[in-house]
Amino acid sequence: MELQFVNISKNYGKKTALTNVNLTLHEGVHALLGPNGAGKSTLMNILTCLLKATDGKITLDGEEITAMGARFRDMLGYLPQNPGFYNSFSGYGVMKYFADLKGMKKPQDRIDELLELVNLTEDKKRKIGHYSGGMKRRLGIAVSLLNDPKLLVLDEPTAGLDPKERMRFRNIIGKLGFDKIVILATHIVSDVESISDNCLLLKNGEIITTGSADDLKEHIKGKVFNTPMSQEKAEEYILNNSCANIIKTEDSLFVHSVSDEKPFENSVPAPANLEDVYMYYFNEQSKTEEEK
């Protein structure tokens, strides 16, 4: 299966949200990373046909998705950023309602299986009004998986989940990537580092780079440093450098930073993680813009 974005652009009046996005995706987990306002949700909405692109097209195995209509929606599973449910429905009732909307016949077994998967079996008869934010999100994940979609689009799926639920979620998504195209938009990079096959970095409506987490980490090899310093100095440095954070250990304190050059004489190179990649690319982008 091949999903292609061809010159996708989107303008809201004079404001440009996306500029010439070109991508080709295959089965696997694709993490769409970018800060707020980067255009992630806009791209998701265009992909799910909730928004119309100003220019360009998206094709699935060569066929334009807007022309596929219900056939495309049959292959699609979508979890929006703020999924809305009906408070008077039970969790099971919501699943049944959306199973009906997705044209599923005899969906009971599938519903039970998915409720088990997202750990909501015991609460399936409770009204949604009594669900916590995390439970609603887990239910949203289950709804998006109802029709066993070939293309799964998840917008900020881990927001509001506790660490245990996030781990559970990562395990679920990791398994799904084998036979589906999973696109996962987030700015919580730690959630996708271990499960993504491909990362797409989006800034100001443009894809700035793509690659696997390891590739991207390789790109910034030698640009990540740990610098031991006093608490006062560290706080002062952090104030002026958004690309750094303080790490405390039992007997010492050091600043973990990303930069092209060694920031201090006593700085030592450190292994990069995906968060460092995120900080490096988006900070560099900001710098470039400021210079312009």
Binding site: T48, C49, L50, R73, D74, Y78, L101
Partner: peptide
């Protein structure tokens, strides 16, 4: 109702979208 609750996105990406409702 769907617009205020946010459910329209889930409905409009289902086979029977809001038009069917």
């Amino acid at each position: 109702m769907e617009r205020t609750s946010g459910a329209y996105q889930l409905i409009n990406t289902s086979r029977k979208n809001s038009r069917r409702l």
